[in-house]
């Protein structure tokens, strides 16, 4: 990797500049890391140690009590079951919502990019606009619609909402990816006798792994981290983990158990952090895909 704008290679005078640069970069790294560090250390301390000690000090005696409480018995409001049931709610709603919205996005993107018909571009523009609306504008009618459909306060209801408002982005991702594949490929396959589905299955699907990763990771992060839909359309028992976390942290009864709050926050953040750690490349690509035009 050569970079013509890089400062000229270190000589005595430049060496100081080099170290200064390095120091600044590391200082910023600490700025981003400290909240995570504080969360982890706090979650491993006892409440007494927290009250006596220092925010950034390492725990004197490590205890996992807070983690146990956060997982299985922390109270949100009147219920004291910890995050566990809500964590599974999030899993149960995220998995189908990600799968369905990705599938629809793949089909839509394939059609819009490779099987253009009159009006397809208009439909795409309409979908694209849908990505950018503030969701507050659909909260009220959606609440009523879910009621009418009998899905109010249920996990399938939340899946439905996430799929509907995820289609715009998944379609955008796949469309922008498939549009870079030459149309001649479809023509050649048509002459070879393959139809719509055969062409997708044999030619496009094998090419789709990168964009599939990007889309799945994007949707997973969005839906797992969602709070607005979760808090608006769930009820006691069906809340996703983000809502439960907020309830535990802001529950007014009893003493504030900071160590439990931090453990709960880490538990809620763990799945997306894990995905970021193992597939960060695709996560970044998803983030920038929406902004850098395809």
């Amino acid at each position: 990797m050569t970079n013509p704008t890089a400062f000229i290679a270190p000589r005595t005078g430049k060496l100081i500049m080099r170290w200064l640069l390095f120091a600044i970069l590391v200082a910023f790294a600490l700025f981003y890391l400290i909240p995570l560090f504080v969360m982890i250390t706090t979650s491993l301390k006892s409440l007494d140690e927290i009250r006596a000690g220092n925010l950034v000090a390492l725990p004197v005696s490590v205890t996992f009590d807070a983690w146990r409480t956060a997982w299985a018995s922390a109270c949100s409001g009147i219920q004291c079951e910890g995050l566990r049931p809500y964590f599974w709610n999030s899993v149960l709603l995220t998995v189908p919502a990600v799968a369905i919205s990705t599938l629809l996005g793949a089909v839509n993107g394939y059609v819009i990019a490779q099987w253009k018909f009159r009006g397809a571009n208009l439909i795409f523009s309409l979908m694209l606009f849908g990505c950018f609306i503030p969701f507050q504008v659909v909260l009220l009618p959606m609440a009523r619609t879910l009621g009418i459909l009998g899905l109010a306060g249920t996990i399938p209801g939340l899946v439905f909402v996430h799929v509907i408002y995820g289609i715009g982005f998944t379609t955008l991702f796949f469309r922008n990816y498939y549009v870079t594949i030459p149309v001649e490929l479809v023509k050649a396959a048509k002459v070879d006798g393959a139809g719509f589905f055969r062409i997708y299955w044999s030619i496009f699907l094998p090419l789709s792994l990168p964009i599939l990763m990007v889309t799945v990771i994007w949707q997973f992060t969005q839906i797992w981290n969602d709070f607005l839909f979760g808090v608006s359309f769930s009820q006691a028992g069906t809340q996703p983990v983000t809502v439960a976390l907020n309830n535990i942290v802001n529950s007014t009864t009893g003493v504030k158990e900071y160590n439990v709050n931090m453990a709960a926050a880490i538990i809620a953040a763990f799945p997306t952090l894990f995905v970021y750690a193992v597939a960060g490349k695709y996560f970044i690509r998803g983030l920038t895909a929406g902004s850098v035009k395809g």
Binding site: P182, E184, L185, K187, A188, A189, V191, S202, I203, P206
Partner: peptide
């Protein structure tokens, strides 16, 4: 196209990239 008994060669070759 498939029933016209023709074969076609494209400018970009249009080879199926994963096969």
């Amino acid at each position: 196209p498939k029933d016209r008994n023709i074969a076609m060669v494209f400018q970009s070759y249009a080879l199926y990239p994963t096969m």
